[in-house]
Structure formats: C-alpha cells, structure tokens
Amino acid sequence: MPELTIGPLTVTDVVLAPMAGVTNPPFRRLCREAGELGARQAGYEGISGLYVCEMVTTRALVERHPETMRMIEPDPGDPIRSIQLYGVEPKTVGAAVRMLVDEDRADHIDLNFGCPVPKVTRRGGGAALPWKLDLFTAIVEAAVDNAGGIPITVKTRVGIDADHITYRDAGRIAQDAGVAAMSLHGRTMAQHYAGRADWDTIALLVEDLDIPVLGNGDLFSADDARAMREHTGCAGIVVGRGCQGRPWIFTDLVADSHGSTVRARPSFREVSAIIHRHAEYSIEHFGDELRAMREMRKHITWYLRGFSVGGERRRELALVATLDELDERLADIPDQDYPDAAEGPRGRAGTEKKPHLPEFWLDSRQLSADQQLKIQAAEVNISGG
C-alpha cells in the first residue's frame, strides 16, 4: 500500500518540500487540492500527502516575529499542519518546538539540515550543521524531547562535499534520538542543484535505518517518482523544484502512487484559472492586493513555461499589480493545449560552488569553545524569519 506512516500520521507517500518564498499557504493549498484530485481519481479516501510550509527560524519564532507568525499560518483546509524549522542552538530549537506544541500550531515538525544557501551555512546551519556531531545530536534531541508526541522528522543532504559526507552518521543519530522519519536530498551542499542527484545514497540510507526514509532530488514527474521508489526502496518521495509553476504535478504523483494512469495536462485557459485562484488565495492570505501580486510574479513566470505567450506579454504579466489586471492580460492570450515544453526539470541547476562555512569548521566533528560562542550569536543574528 503506497502510504507513509510518520508517528501517528498516515498519508500518501508524497511530500511537498518546503521552499523559501514558495511554499506559503496559498501555494500549499493549490498543491494539496491537486493531490486530493489525484486521490479521488485513483479511488483513494485517505490523506493525499504532506504539504510542508517554508522554513522558519527558531529564534524568530520564539520572538514571535510578525512575518514569521504569518509564515506558520496553515493552509486552512489541510488536515495535517506541517512546519519546517531551522535553528543552530539546541535550547532555542527546543523552545520553538515546545511553543508549537503548547499552542497547538503543528501536527508535524521537520528540522532543516539541508539548506545549501551561504547565508545559512556560513553560520554553521543547514547542510553544514550535521558535520558537528555533538551539535546535531543536541538539536535533534531537544526537538524530540519537547515534541509531546508530535512526530519530528529530519531533512538533510549527503554532506558538505565529496570529502565530507554526513548523511549516514546523521541518520543513525536521528533514529537513536527518536525521529519519526528522515528525508535525504541526494546531493552535497557544494553541488547545490548541479548535476544529477545520487539516488544510491538514498538506497544506502534505507538499508541503514529502520525508520522511514524519504527520497529527494530530480523528481519532475510521476515517472521520476516511480523510478526513485524502485531504485531506492524509499518510503516516500519529496518534491521541490518540480512543482514550481506546476502544482498539478501532485495530481499525477498521488494518482500514480495509487495505481492510476491519470495525468494532468491543463490547457492555457485551465492554467489561467489556476493562476487566478492562486492570486485570490494570496490576496486573502496577505490581506494586501499589491503585496500578493508581487508575490505572484515569480509564480506567473513559472506557470507560463512552455506556452506560446510572447516576450512582451510575459513582461507585462511580470508587472501586474491587481487581480483585474492579471485577469485582463491572461484573457488576451489565446487558449492552447498543454505543451510538452512545460514538462521536465524546473529551477536553476547551476554549477557546483565552494561551501561557505564558519572558520575552521571542518577541522573537527565536534564544536570548539569558540565555535560554540559563535553558534549562539548566529542564532540571534539570523532572527527575522
């Protein structure tokens, strides 16, 4: 049965990866609705998957930063409220988890140890953190100890670079600490999104652990998801860039997971209706039409991929300021079938990059006294959501 069990939760084995500036409640709602359509088409009556909010910092959460509090607002129709936390100081991570539990704000909490962005890793966070075994252990244990029965999961990468691999140690520590599942992106921090994800690493982690292991990396279609399951034996798949401008991929993923061959290939007019609904959800969420439309602009660019629109109209749509303006500009574009060019990889792959790390970070797998002090400062400095 293609279901994923995480603590007391049982869902279809499909997860929306948290993405900064992307997986806010309006976009999560669209993805969930698409997944629920796939479930109905496959005759499945359970929960269609996990749809995780964009990463929030633990310090900003504990401080109740207004924008961070907005970020953790749930998609109002989601039966499972999933929140991803980033933190580098165990006490603060524990306090953030306890806050979410005590205030009944989450049903599932994920810990981010996979972010490769320099502003995070140069402070020792994200994909850099599992190199320090003592710090990683303390953070995971603090989260589990304060979770009150809510399942904690961990997301990480293969390592910092090919010479500094961390995922198998991290998996063992996380399992021993009591996490409910672990997700692995089959790339190192240095790779960012370059090259191909190494699915063999996911297969090895599946062999290592008794808890569910979820696979992430280069999932752009239902065929890719099926191939990953077959190659790795993973308990679930985590989709990130593959859904940008394409929330209907969750119809395909959930339907395929339950044995259906149904695939969503929306016409331009149908995509326009999805864009309109996305904009309406965004205006409702932000309570500010101009801000909502500014947030929509990147999504509109992704939605238009592969369609015959024209450069000038694309530029006009990238500057929309109101819902009426959006509708007018979309209505001017002739309807057309879903193009093959809209399929395939999404997002910028780029090239490998030199890891940005704290000074002397790779000298030892344990924190030095000086690094301990700097880690505490980093937690404060990154405050702000």
Rank of each mutant, 00 (worst) to 15 (best):
18 P>A: 09
246 R>M: 07
110 D>N: 11
320 V>A: 08
102 D>Y: 04
300 I>Y: 13
378 A>T: 13
376 Q>H: 07
4 L>T: 07
333 I>K: 00
46 G>L: 03
164 H>Q: 07
139 I>S: 02
343 E>A: 15
92 T>E: 15
152 I>M: 12
4 L>Y: 11
282 S>F: 01
345 P>Y: 02
91 K>L: 02
34 A>D: 02
6 I>L: 14
118 P>V: 01
324 D>I: 11
30 L>N: 01
113 F>W: 09
50 L>E: 14
385 G>V: 05
16 L>N: 02
378 A>G: 06
310 G>Q: 09
352 E>F: 02
373 L>I: 14
43 G>M: 00
154 V>Y: 09
234 C>P: 07
369 A>L: 14
283 I>P: 06
219 L>T: 09
384 G>V: 02
309 V>N: 11
22 V>A: 03
72 I>N: 14
166 T>C: 09
169 D>Q: 05
212 P>L: 13
175 Q>D: 15
270 E>T: 09
74 P>D: 08
272 S>H: 06
327 D>A: 15
49 G>I: 03
159 G>F: 04
344 G>Y: 04
275 I>R: 06
303 Y>P: 11
353 K>W: 00
19 M>W: 04
113 F>E: 15
207 E>I: 07
198 D>Y: 11
43 G>K: 00
86 Y>D: 00
172 R>D: 04
108 H>V: 10
169 D>R: 01
70 R>S: 11
365 R>W: 00
333 I>V: 04
200 D>L: 09
233 G>E: 12
88 V>Q: 04
74 P>F: 03
214 L>V: 14
167 Y>I: 10
19 M>I: 07
32 R>E: 03
377 A>D: 12
60 A>Y: 13
304 L>H: 06
